[in-house]
Amino acid sequence: MKRFYIIGFAILLGFDTLAQLSFKYAGDQALPVQANLAWLERVFTQPWVYGAVVGYIGAFFTWMTLLRRAPIGPAFAASHLEVVSVLLLSVPVFGESIGWSQALGAAAIVAGIFCLALSESEDEPG
């Protein structure tokens, strides 16, 4: 069962990260934002928009599958790991930098997920 969770959450993390990075890339390519048909055409001709759609659809189905078996507390917390993965990947992909507050926040997210996972494993019988 642990392998199911690890693989499932890795897939969920991949889909969520794909969606977020794709939206960012597509948004950067569609600038400047304008309320007209030309802007909508620029948005929907970006292949990254479709990467975002694939990411969200994949994440939805993966999440629904995980919720059938995973405890809701750790599952909900682990679903937020994409915040950390997007933060880390934004450095090489978009040339952004990570400040101490972002690093501290990412560490808090990971520590919280770890604590929830430990408490859940202690509650398991046997």
Results as ranks from 00 to 15, higher is better:
Ile7Lys: 02
Ile98Phe: 04
Val91Ala: 06
Val54Gly: 01
Leu118Met: 14
Val49Ala: 09
Gly27Leu: 02
Gly51Thr: 10
Gly126Arg: 06
Thr62Ala: 01
Pro71Met: 05
Gly55Arg: 06
Ala106Ile: 05
Met64Val: 03
Ala111His: 02
Trp48Ala: 12
Val43Cys: 12
Leu66Trp: 03
Phe61His: 02
Asp123Asn: 14
Phe4Lys: 08
Leu89Ile: 05
Val83Lys: 04
Tyr5Asp: 05
Ile57Pro: 00
Ala26His: 09
Leu13Lys: 00
Ser90Pro: 00
Ala78Phe: 06
Phe114Cys: 14
Phe114Gly: 13
Lys2Ser: 13
Ala19Asn: 07
Ala77Tyr: 01
His80Gln: 15
Ile72Pro: 07
Phe15Ile: 05
Ile7Gln: 00
Ile6Thr: 11
Pro71Leu: 13
Gly8Lys: 05
Ser22Asp: 02
Ser90Gln: 04
Ser85Ala: 15
Gly99Trp: 07
Pro32Ala: 07
Ile7Phe: 12
Ile113Ser: 04
Gly51Lys: 10
Val54Lys: 03
Leu13Pro: 02
Leu116Ser: 07
Ala35Val: 08
Gly73Ile: 11
Leu40Ser: 14
Ala10Tyr: 09
Ala70Glu: 06
Leu88Pro: 10
Leu67Gln: 12
Pro47Glu: 11
Phe15Asp: 03
Gln46Trp: 07
Ala19Lys: 04
Lys2Glu: 14
Asp16Ser: 11
Leu89Arg: 04
Leu18Glu: 00
Leu18Cys: 03
Gln29Tyr: 02
Leu12Trp: 02
Met1His: 14
Phe23Cys: 00
